[in-house]
């Protein structure tokens, strides 16, 4: 209600690891902060009929400590572990990470790879959209000013889907990703790939799927050649930028190498099953 009435200069406060920094740099931009981090309907992790439900205000530390997340979606634990450092993970929330919507958001690729769905609540009710549609541009989501991200759902059919996440930063802790890659796939009985997903971060205005690369691998044997080909196709789909952290060319190179590795590891996990 408060947010709906004061939309222009009000912000919802989650973990604060991004927003508090923004407040320091531009203190005049916000008149009203609404702390949503303790709202019960925004918290909690649990299995429902539709799948695994993660409240948007669940912190990365809570995700990492959750037995159910560890068991059903270990790659979300691995991705959470790459966010900032312990102190950041103790405050930062998965919902906050998605809403801030930086291209390098560490939580995005592994959620995308599992076809996560987000639920949004606003003054005119609730709606659910695939996570891919949630991102609009750098620091821009589909959220209307009166809306909040309530929860994230990993569909039941994707719980336990073989998946692998790789973050590449300039140092191991406290670094923004130069490139993030998450892959997920099943293997058919004949050993061919089914439902491949390749999600990439920090190489386009928003976290993205490499759809053509996925298509190139779908139904094929996951041999060296096909995995490498998918990785090469992924490179053709990205729009990386040059900045002080890395050149666009270096990011292309990383995407190829890391996509290959993520696919390879996902295949290994799938064949162990």
């Amino acid at each position: 209600m408060l947010l709906a009435e004061n939309t222009a200069r009000a912000r919802a406060l989650a973990g604060g690891t991004d927003l508090v920094v923004d407040l320091k740099h531009a203190p005049g931009d916000v008149d009203l902060l609404v702390d949503v981090s303790q709202l019960p309907e925004f918290g909690g992790i649990g299995e429902t009929e539709e799948g695994l439900r993660i409240g948007s205000m669940v912190t990365f530390s809570e995700l990492m400590a959750s037995p159910i997340v560890n068991q059903m979606t270990p790659e979300i634990v691995a991705a959470s572990h790459t966010v900032g450092a312990v102190q950041t993970r103790n405050l930062g929330t998965i919902g906050g990470n998605l809403v801030t919507c930086v291209p390098s958001a560490d939580s995005a690729p592994s959620l995308l790879a599992l076809d996560a769905i987000v639920t949004i609540a606003g003054s005119d009710g609730k709606r659910s959209v695939p996570l891919e549609k949630f991102f609009v541009g750098p620091r821009k989501t589909i959220l209307e000013p009166h809306e909040l991200l309530v929860e994230i759902l990993i569909p039941k059919k994707n719980l336990g889907k073989p998946s692998h996440f790789i973050k590449f930063g300039l140092r191991k802790g406290q670094a923004l990703a130069l490139v993030n890659v998450a892959a997920a796939l099943y293997l058919n009985d004949d050993g061919t790939v089914a439902e491949p997903r390749i999600a990439l971060g920090a190489v386009a205005p928003t976290p993205m799927f490499a759809r053509k690369a996925e298509a190139s691998l779908d139904g094929k044997k996951p041999d060296e050649e096909n995995l490498l080909e998918a990785a090469r196709v992924a490179v053709s789909e990205i729009k990386p930028i040059d900045d002080f952290r890395a050149s666009a060319n270096y990011r292309r190179h990383l995407v190829q190498t890391l996509t290959y590795r993520a696919l390879k590891r996902s295949t290994e996990i799938a064949s162990e099953h």
Binding site: L13, G16, T17, V20, V21, K24, L33, D35, S37, S61, G84, A85, V86, Q87, T88, N90, L91, Q174
Partner: peptide
């Protein structure tokens, strides 16, 4: 650093380490 990168402001809140420069006092 005042932006949660360096850790010199670390304190424990309810058993968890946090960057006190990123936590509003009200919280």
């Amino acid at each position: 650093c005042d932006v949660g990168d360096c850790g010199t402001c670390t304190v424990i809140v309810d058993g968890k380490s946090v960057n006190s420069c990123l936590m509003l006092a009200g919280r």
